[in-house]
Structures are given as C-alpha cells and as structure tokens.
Amino acid sequence: MARIIVVTSGKGGVGKTTTSAAIAMGLAKKGHKTAVIDFDVGLRNLDLIMGCERRVVYDFVNVINGEASLNQALIRDKHCDLLYILPASQTRDKDSLTQEGVGKILEELSKDFKYIVCDSPAGIEKGAHLAMYFADDAFVVTNPEVSSVRDSDRMLGLLSSKSRRAEQNEEPIKEYLLLSRYAPDRVKLGEMLSVDDVQEILSLHLLGVIPESKSVLNASNSGTPVILDEKSDAGQAYADIVARYLGEDKPHRFIDEKKGLFGKLFGSK
C-alpha cells in the first residue's frame, strides 16, 4: 500500500508545485517508487518544473475518462527511474475530475507505488478538495505572512473534517508544516512572521523551513526539481525535509540569519 501525501496550502503561489516536485524526487532518490500527480487541471505546471512537458501524451483526465491507461499516461522521470509523473490536462475544465475517478486511480497506483504525491491547486474548491480527500499525510505549505497562515489554518480545518479519513472516522490525516520562502533578515526587520509566530498560530509539527532562494527560479527554468541542486540552500532544505519525513533526525536549518563575512570573522550577533 502506498502512502498518499497531499501538498496543499489554500493560498496560491506559496510553493506547492515546487515542493511537490522536490519531495517526490527526494523520496524516489531515497529508493522509494514514487508518483507525483498534478491536480491543477487547466493550469498545469508540474510537468514544467519536472522538465517533462515535451513528453506529455495523455493526462490525468484521459485516465479518469478511460481514454488511456495509467501506464500510458505516467511519464518516467529522466533523472530517476523510480519517479513517475502524472500530468494534468491543460485543456479540460476542472469538472473533469470526479471523486470516484480519482479514487480509482489512486487505488490502482497504490498497488505499485510506495508514495503518491498530490500537487494541489490553490483554493478550497473541488480540485483542492479532491487532491486532499484521499490523503494519509498533508504537507501544508505556508509562507510567513498572515494571509497565508490564515489560509493554511482553513485548509487544516478541511483536512480534519472533509477528508476520507475524517468521514470514515479513521485515524486523522497526519499534518506537517512546511514554512516556505523564509527570509530571516526580513523576519528580523519585522516584515515577515517568524517560525515561532507561525508555529504559535497553527500549532503544527514543523517538518522544515525552506529559505527564499534564487535557486528555486533557476531550477524551474531548467526543469529540474531544486532538490537536485545539492549545493543550494533550498535544495538542502528539501533534502532535510524528506529525511525528516522518513524518520531521520535532522536539526532545523535556515531559520537564523546567514552571518555575512563580517559576522563570521568577528562572531558578531
């Protein structure tokens, strides 16, 4: 049986797709057969971040409608044999996704995969609902600002009441906080919420902090998940997150200000 992870947020543009691509790659690189599914029908871009947009033949909706088999639609990643991408449709409208159809596909994937990562669209409407409905774990991606935190809180409410696990009275979805686009210097200036602020509002287990980083843009331009850029801070942050999720003990990084050369030399605070 696979473990189904939804990467969700409520608010748009906080880094869900970046995160989905990175952790799916990270899990696969650790030796787990992983599928990553784009639930953002009509606005697909997971395939761009994964660099497989030119190999898309069939998509998620084709499989739901029975126009293609799952095997035909899954795209094997070019960097890692254990990673497969199920792209979203660019042309269909959101109503093409049905709960029954999604359930069937996840069930079929579950037989063969260890992890299934669902990249949720923004909002709390149907697409986002279907992305989280069958989840076992939720990675709640939040930016350190009030509106993002508020939307995450709303999403957490839905996870605990409108999911399959909630409806069937099973053990609740495991929820993790991923604080993304974190800039310690801006926190210090009071322009952003701190890790502690966000933790206090959401009271949620922190899986990791991903720093605001130029490497994310570079990675998406070149179509390689940022986790493959092992020298970059964001890449390392995602590697830590995957390790922690798999049970390794890694101290948190990227929370404090980087000390500049001056700081290093004189150990100033």
């Binding site: 508020r150 709303r154 409410g157 839905l158 605990s160 509002i201 009271s203």
Partner: peptide
C-alpha cells in the same frame, strides 16, 4: 480535543469544553 480551525463551527447543546486552540475565523 482537536484545534478548531478557521472556517470550522462547533455547536454544543449544553456546555462546551475545548482543550485545543480556537483559530481566528473559527
């Protein structure tokens, strides 16, 4: 015993005891 999140609503026909936080918007 679970947090009451933004957008959630709890109604008790008697007394209500909440052990977890009640978020803004709940």
């Amino acid at each position: 015993t679970q947090p009451v999140r933004s957008g959630q609503r709890i109604y008790a026909s008697g007394d209500l005891i909440v052990l977890a936080q009640v978020s803004a918007g709940a």
